[in-house]
Design a protein around this nucleic acid. Structure first.
Length: 733
DNA sequence: AGAAGATAGCTTTTT
DNA sequence: GCTATCTTCT
C-alpha cells in the first residue's frame, strides 16, 4: 500500500467487506480514499470486473477511472453516474419493460414541453401551474408511485390532486408512446426492471460484488434503493459523503440517506475524515464558523495544518458594477504578480449574477469561462438540429418530431399540428406512425404533411446505415435547417449556423474517439453531460454557480453577491429554511485553497431596478477573518458613464422605443439635455406608469444614430443609451 | 400562415 | 431588462 494515506484514511481503505460509511469533510481526501479502496480491493484479489463506482458527474467518473488505471496500469472497473449506469442497463433490457432499445432520454426541457402540450388540452387549468405539475410528477416518481397511488397520498391535502393525477397519467402515456424516459424514469424503470426480473437483478448482484458510491449525501430515495438492491447479495456497500455538503434537496436528494445509514445497516462501520488538505487554517475557520450554525448534522470540525495570515478578505462594494470591477482588478493584479488565470474562480448563487463579471473581464482582457446556465447542448439551434437526429433514431419520439415538423417553415399551421397530436393520442400511436400510415387523418392534412413525411422517412432510413458524422451532416441538409440558417436575414442566425457547425465537429470528435460507438450512443452522452464535464486545463478564470463547482478546488475564490435575498435566497428566508443555503455557503468557502474574497454590493440592479439589500447573514457568521472594507463612492458620480460593448441590443432598443410610444399614454412629462463625449443631443422624455423614461423626441447632433434612450436624472431610476452605429459606445450607468 | 408588435412575468441551484 | 407568449396586422 503506497497510497500516501493518513491513519484514518488508511483504516477506511483497509476495511474491505460489509456496509461502510465514510464521513469525509471537504478537502479531506475523499476521492483519494475511494480510489485507494478500489485499488486495494484489486490488489487483494478482487476482480476489477466485480467493482462498481458511482459518482455524481461524468467528469468525476472519468477521473476516477483514470486514477485507477494510472495506479494499476489497467482497469475494467465500471465507473459511471447513476443516470448513465441506468441508461446502460435499460438499453440492454428495455424490451422487458415494453420500451424499444433506442428510447430517447428527455431532459427537463422536453418534459416541460410535454406538460405544456397536455395543459393546452385542459383549458380549465392555469398553464402557469405547469411547474407545479412537473414537481409533482418528479416527486411521485422518486417515491415510485403511479398516478393513482400518488393521488391517494395527496388527495387529503391538495385540492388539485385530481388534476395532478390526470396530468401525470397523460404525461406517462405520452412518454411511453414516444418510447422516451425522463431523468426520473431512468432510475425508476431500472428499479422496476430489477423488481420484475429477479434474474436480471441477480446477474448484476453477482457481477457487482463491491459497490462504491461517491457524494452519497446527494442521493435520492430511488438511487439509495438502487444501490441497496444491487448490494443486497454481497452486502458490500461503501459510501462516501458529507452531510454538510448536501445541496440538492430541492431535486429530491435525501439527507437522511446519510444521517440514517446506521439505522439501515446496524453493522455498518463508520469512519470520519476531518483533516483537510486543501485550505488554509483561516479559510477553514470561516467555513466551520458558518456551518456550525446548522442543527441537522453530525458534528465534526475540519482542521488543517496549512498556516496562513489573513487569507480571507471581505469587501463591501458600492454597487454591483463596483463589485465586478473590484474582482477584475484583484485578478489582474494577482495575475501580474504571476498567478495564472486558472487559479481563480468567481462563485455566484444564481446564474443571473454572472453578466457583469463577463463584461468587466472582457474590458480588462481577462480570459474566462462561464459554467452553469445555458449549455451548448441546450441552445435552441442545437436542440433543433438534434431533434432531427433523435427522430431518426427513435421515430416514436413525439416531442422531437413536433419540435421540427414546421422548422424550418413548411407552411404548416396550428390546426394541422393539433390534428396530428390528437389523432396520435386517440390511436395511441406515435405521430410518426400516424404520419406514415395516414391513419385517422383528413386527406387535406395528410397532403400538407407529405413534405415533412418524406424528410422524416429519409432520415429514419439513413440513420441505420450512415456513420454518425455523415448522418448529422445529411440531416442538416435534408431537413433544410442548414440552408435556412445560411440564407436567413436574421443576424442571430449567423451565430446559430456556427453553433450547428460546432455540433458537427463535436460528433466528428466523438466518432474519432469512439469509432465503435453509434449515433445513439452519442445522443445518450449528450443527454447526460453536465456542465463540469466541460472544464479543462486551459488558462481561464472560472465564473460559475456554486453547484457547478462542487467537488472542485481553486487557489483563489471570490464569493460574490453576498446579500440577504440573493444568498441566502429570498425564498429560503421567507420559508425559514436556510440550512441548505448555509451548506451551499460552506461548499463555496471550502473550494478555496489559499485565498478567499467575500464580496457584497450595497446596491444592485435587479429586475430593471436598483435594489438595496443588506449584507448576507453568512458574512456575519464567518467571523474570525480580517475585514478590509473599502468604499469607492467617489469613483461613481451620478453622471459617470460606462463603456460597454454594443451587443445585439441596438436593433432591439429601436423597437422598444417604437413600442413604448404607441399604446399607453405616458403619465408624466419632462425634458432634459445630455452631453456626453460621444455626442450631444436634446431629449424629451415621458414617464410611463412603471416610472420608466421614454423618449418622445430627440434633436441635435447624432440624433440619427440614437435608437433608444431611457433616461435617468429626470425622476427615472436608470438610463440606457443605445446607439445604432456599431462602433459607437453605449453609455449607461 | 407568418411576421411584427405588445405585454406579462420573472431569477435559484441541475443529473 | 429580458424573454416567452399572446395579439394584431399583412
Amino acid at each position: 500500500m503506497i497510497y500516501d494515506l493518513n491513519p484514518q484514511q488508511l483504516k477506511a481503505v483497509q476495511e474491505m467487506d460489509g456496509p461502510i460509511l465514510v464521513i469525509a469533510g471537504a478537502g479531506s481526501g475523499k476521492t483519494r480514499v475511494l480510489t485507494a479502496r478500489i485499488c486495494h480491493l484489486i490488489e487483494k484479489g478482487v476482480s476489477p470486473y466485480n467493482i462498481l463506482a458511482i459518482t455524481f458527474t461524468n467528469k468525476a467518473a472519468n477521473e476516477m477511472k483514470e486514477r485507477i488505471e494510472k495506479a494499476l496500469g489497467s482497469s475494467g472497473v465500471w465507473t459511471s453516474t447513476f443516470h448513465s449506469m441506468c441508461a446502460r442497463m435499460l438499453r440492454r433490457d428495455a424490451d422487458k419493460l415494453g420500451y424499444g432499445k433506442d428510447f430517447t432520454i428527455y431532459t427537463e426541457q422536453e418534459s416541460d414541453r410535454v406538460v405544456r402540450r397536455i395543459l393546452q388540452n385542459m383549458p380549465y387549468v392555469d398553464p402557469k401551474k405547469k411547474g407545479e405539475f412537473l414537481w409533482h410528477i418528479s416527486r411521485a416518481k422518486t417515491f415510485a408511485m403511479s398516478p393513482d397511488e400518488y393521488f391517494d397520498v395527496i388527495k387529503e391535502v391538495d385540492k388539485e390532486a385530481e388534476i395532478v393525477r390526470t396530468v401525470y397519467s397523460l404525461y406517462e402515456e405520452e412518454l411511453t408512446r414516444s418510447n422516451s424516459m425522463d431523468f426520473d424514469d431512468l432510475l425508476l424503470k431500472t428499479v422496476t426492471l430489477f423488481e420484475e426480473n429477479p434474474d436480471v437483478l441477480e446477474g448484476y448482484q453477482d457481477r457487482f460484488k463491491y459497490i462504491n458510491v461517491d457524494e452519497f449525501q446527494d442521493t435520492n430515495r430511488l438511487q439509495y434503493k438502487l444501490v441497496k438492491l444491487l448490494s443486497a447479495k454481497s452486502g458490500n456497500l461503501f459510501v462516501v459523503g458529507d452531510e454538510d455538503q448536501s445541496v440538492y434537496s430541492w431535486r429530491g436528494a435525501d439527507i437522511r440517506n446519510i444521517l440514517d445509514f446506521k439505522k439501515d445497516f446496524p453493522e455498518a462501520k463508520i469512519f470520519k475524515l476531518e483533516q483537510n488538505y486543501r485550505s488554509t487554517t483561516s479559510i477553514l475557520q470561516a467555513a466551520n464558523n458558518v456551518i456550525k450554525n446548522n442543527s441537522n448534522r453530525n458534528k465534526k470540525t475540519l482542521w488543517s495544518d496549512i498556516r496562513d495570515e489573513n487569507s480571507v478578505s471581505y469587501y463591501e462594494a458600492y454597487n454591483d458594477r463596483d463589485e465586478a470591477e473590484q474582482t477584475a482588478r484583484t485578478i489582474a493584479s494577482l495575475a501580474a504578480e504571476g498567478a495564472s488565470y486558472s487559479d481563480f474562480a468567481v462563485l455566484v448563487r444564481a446564474n443571473s449574477l454572472t453578466r457583469l463579471f463577463e463584461e468587466e473581464f472582457n474590458l480588462n482582457g481577462i480570459p474566462y469561462k462561464v459554467f452553469g446556465g445555458y449549455r451548448f447542448f441546450e441552445r435552441k439551434e442545437i436542440k433543433d438540429a438534434l431533434a432531427y437526429v433523435r427522430l431518426a433514431i427513435n421515430p416514436s419520439d413525439n416531442d422531437s418530431l413536433l419540435r421540427v415538423i414546421n422548422y424550418p417553415r413548411r407552411g404548416l399551421g396550428e390546426n394541422t399540428v393539433k390534428e396530428l397530436i390528437s389523432v396520435s393520442a386517440e390511436q395511441d400511436m406515435p405521430i410518426y406512425d400516424v404520419l406514415t400510415s395516414g391513419v385517422g387523418l383528413s386527406s387535406a392534412v395528410y397532403k400538407k404533411l407529405s413534405v415533412f413525411k418524406d424528410i422524416a422517412q429519409d432520415l429514419v432510413k439513413n440513420a441505420e446505415t450512415m456513420k454518425p458524422t455523415a448522418f448529422v451532416q445529411f440531416a442538416l441538409r435534408r431537413s433544410g435547417l442548414e440552408d435556412f440558417l445560411a440564407t436567413s436575414k436574421d443576424q442571430e442566425d449567423v451565430g446559430r449556423l456556427e453553433n450547428v457547425q460546432e455540433l458537427v465537429n463535436a460528433v466528428s470528435e466523438f466518432e474519432k474517439d469512439n469509432p465503435e460507438l453509434t449515433l445513439s450512443d452519442f445522443m445518450q452522452s449528450v443527454a447526460l453531460v453536465s456542465d463540469a464535464d466541460g472544464m479543462d486545463e486551459e488558462n481561464y478564470v472560472t465564473i460559475a454557480t456554486i453547484h457547478a463547482v462542487k467537488g472542485l478546488e481553486f487557489d483563489t475564490v471570490f464569493i460574490v453577491g453576498l446579500e440577504d435575498g440573493i444568498f441566502p435566497t429570498q425564498r429560503a428566508i421567507a420559508e425559514g429554511d436556510i440550512e441548505e443555503e448555509r451548506r451551499l455557503m460552506y461548499v463555496a468557502i471550502t473550494r478555496a485553497k489559499n485565498r478567499l474574497f467575500v464580496f457584497n454590493a450595497r446596491s444592485r440592479y435587479r429586475y430593471g431596478q436598483t435594489v438595496y439589500l443588506p449584507k448576507s447573514r453568512f458574512v456575519g457568521e464567518m467571523t474570525g477573518f480580517r475585514q478590509s472594507v473599502r468604499y469607492t463612492n467617489s469613483d461613481y458620480g451620478e453622471d459617470r458613464s460606462d463603456r460597454i460593448k454594443l451587443g445585439a441590443n441596438a436593433e432591439r432598443s429601436r423597437s422598444v422605443l417604437k413600442n413604448s410610444m404607441s399604446p399607453q399614454k405616458p403619465k408624466a412629462e419632462s425634458g432634459g439635455n445630455i452631453d456626453y463625449s460621444a455626442f450631444s443631443v436634446n431629449v424629451q422624455v415621458e414617464h410611463n406608469k412603471f416610472g420608466r423614461g421614454i423618449i418622445v423626441e430627440t434633436s441635435g447632433e447624432g440624433e440619427d444614430k440614437i435608437a433608444a434612450i431611457a433616461f435617468k436624472g429626470l425622476g427615472v431610476k436608470r438610463f440606457v443609451l443605445a446607439i445604432a452605429a456599431p462602433n459607437l459606445k453605449i453609455i449607461r450607468d
